[in-house]
Amino acid sequence: MSSTVMERLPANSATRGTLSAGRRIITSPKYAPVLVTLGLFIAMFVSGGVRYDNFWSPQVLLNLFVDNAYLIVLAVGMTFVILTGGIDLSVGSVIALSAMICAKLLEAGVPAAGVIAVTLIATSLLGLGMGLMIHVFKVQPFIATLAGMFLARGLCYVISEASISINDPFFVSMASTRIPLGGSASITISVIIALLVVAVAFYVLHYSRFGRTVYALGGSEQSGTLMGLPVGRTKVLVYVVSGLCSGISGVLYSFYTLSGYSLTAVGTELDAIAAVVIGGTLLTGGYGFVLGSALGVLVLGLIQTMISYEGTLSSWWTRIFIGGLLLVFIVLQKVLTRRRD
């Protein structure tokens, strides 16, 4: 197969060189899953526009960011954890806890800046606790973060059983301010924050020693230790990062819903994990991209948008549809990235 393709390439060696370099990128196990996801995303968007009216508008794409800004930040935090071969099940409950802390403190009259600071510190501390459990006490990440999930959710109920409305002017303005982008398209400030988080994470993962250690941990912890990398510190830090991201996500979520509600964000951790996997990160660690995770979130958002435009799917067909589409994605990703021999 490869020889036939090579024969059909233009004789010009420069073009051939670029083409084969391009082909190498597309089929490399590192980039291929993300590129496949991008391709499938575009295919889905195209088919949506064909089928529904008012689908091919820039606002539909921008709404994906507006509605999922909190999930993008969450997926970024989850990427760090999964890259080291761990997992964090507490993120959904921590979103609920963050929003609840914000709502309760704002109700008590604490100024917005203080509220946000307290929330981020609290969630980072929770992440630190889980990280210490995992590293010092060698508790498995699944269990440690499951305990974190129960604890965060439990604290939500303790803080307030009923939901609390947020009326603070800063939060309200963050929720309703729209940044126009020409025409009738607009985005919220949360989108900017989410994109900033993605950019910072990208920089940290690819251009800092911490990031390199994170990737190394996922590859092989033993090798990392032998190489003299600060394995223990990094292992704990990724959970702090995840906790911090969950806190930021929770604050964005409270901008989004302007309320603290103890039953919110149940199961959101699975959405984050699905987004990270769709984005090409391996759950065994060592491979993955933050940009891929963000793309994974957009894919999930697009699936939901299409279901909403369809307008006829009952609750059960919706679940079957989501499961089916997820299956198609994962299988195609596997098939398309299988190394050719």
Binding site: D67, Y253, T264, A265, V266, G311, L313, S315, T318
Partner: peptide
């Protein structure tokens, strides 16, 4: 018709 699977964020979307 859309079903939010009991999530507020899905209803907002």
């Amino acid at each position: 018709f859309s079903d939010a699977q009991q999530k507020q964020e899905n209803q907002i979307k």
